[in-house]
Structures are given as C-alpha cells and as structure tokens.
Design a protein around this nucleic acid. Sequence first.
DNA 1: CAGAATCCATTCGGATACTG
DNA 2: CAGTATCCGAATGGATTCTG
Lengths: 121, 121
Amino acid sequence: MSEGTPDADVPDVSVDDIRCCCPVDGVLELVSGKYAIQVICLVGAVQPARYAEIEEALEDVSSSTLSNRLEELTEAGLLHRESYDEIPPRVEYRMTGDGEELCRLLQPLVEWANEREGSAL
Amino acid sequence: MSEGTPDADVPDVSVDDIRCCCPVDGVLELVSGKYAIQVICLVGAVQPARYAEIEEALEDVSSSTLSNRLEELTEAGLLHRESYDEIPPRVEYRMTGDGEELCRLLQPLVEWANEREGSAL
DNA sequence: CAGAATCCATTCGGATACTG
DNA sequence: CAGTATCCGAATGGATTCTG
C-alpha cells in the first residue's frame, strides 16, 4: 500500500481485483449501437410499437439502421417481434422480460444524461 | 387507441410523448465508446488510477484508444486528471462528482449484463 | 407497411513508432 | 511513464432501391 490514508468508505481494491469485472461483450455492446437505447426506451414505453412508429419517433434514423438495431435486440432476446399475416403487413414489437429489466436499468442513466444536457455542457 | 385494453400499470403514452426523451448525445454516446464503461468502472473502483495501471487492467486496449477514451471522459468532466511534475512523469485519474454518479448509475447495468453472459446467451 | 439488399462515406479502433 | 502522431483495415451507419 503506497497510500497510507485509511479511508472507511473507499474499499481497498487494486486493479487486479477489478480485472474480471467488465467483459462488456453482449448486452453492453448491443446497447452502444446507434439508437439502441432510444429503441429500448421507446418500445418499453409505448408497447406495442410498430416499425413505422419507431421510425417516426426517432426522426432521423435510416431504415437500414433501425432494421439492424431491431434485429439485434430481438435476437438478443430483449425484444419480442410479432408479425401478423395481413395486408398491409403489421409487425409489433414488445419487450421481453429481460428487455423490461434492461429498460428499468437504463432509465436512471438516461434521465441523468438528459439532465446533464440541459444544465451543463 | 387501437388497443382497447386499459391497464393500470402501463401508462397511456404515445410515441409523441416519448420523442423528447432520448437525445443520446453527450454522456450516452460517450459511454458507448470502446472500453469507456470499463474505464469508468475501473477508475471508480481503484481511484486514483494511473495510465499504466488502467492499460494493464484492460489488457488488450491500444494506447491510442485508451488515450482517446481518457481524454473524452476528462473533457466531459467525468474524470479528473492530475499530472505531477516528476521524472518519470506520473498522472493520476480520479472520478469527478459527476463521474461517481455515472459510475453508480452504471453499476447495476454492468452487473446485470455480467450475469446474463454467465447464464444465457 | 416492414423490411432486405446493395453501395458508399465516414468513423473507429489497432499497431507501430516516436517524444517530453 | 504517459502519452501523441500517423497510417491503415475493419466496422458502422446512411441513402437508395426494391419487394412480399
């Protein structure tokens, strides 16, 4: 210990203890895709959400990008995609249980981020 | 309202109410940079952390990438960078208040993500 | 309507070499 | 030690076109 300052609320951790903590594969990478968080928030809030609805709400997302995000999130088991055999076709997206959970986890982060945009920066 | 199913715990929101909710500029974009979350978690936990320490803990990050991330986070006011006039030079990174807050907000997310890696996927 | 496919511009990150 | 600078390949996202 080079620092001789004992501090009650700062646990005595070294980098070695941390090394295992953040794979940041999977979910975390997914979430960092463009519009991923918005999609999650949006579907979490409006549920069920249709493709066109999401596209419009995001305003400047391209269809290919939205397509990719939706597919990734669906494959990851965060969104549930239900398509109806109608003409014109209708597809509805909902959160899965995991999706809901992630959405909940994300919310404080998003709110805090929004406040920061508002005030500082 | 096409769905006529009133539901107590699902608020009656339409996409229009959401549109304003997720800028995802600033913080959220920052966080999606490669290794950004790890850096935050790491510095939050070992504090103060030196460049070489972080680099080693992240194991396969390139110096340029780490450099960028550190600079971004510092500029955004999430990290505090203190350099000492010594030879060899020493630089210490700590969290700012905002950084700590973000770190706290991130933690549940990271833990949940880690659990998911472990079990499913 | 809900995408899939293609093509392209830009961005991002890694490797390497160099510096105060 | 703590970076910066440069170059380059890979990955990402946007625009557009087309389709069931």
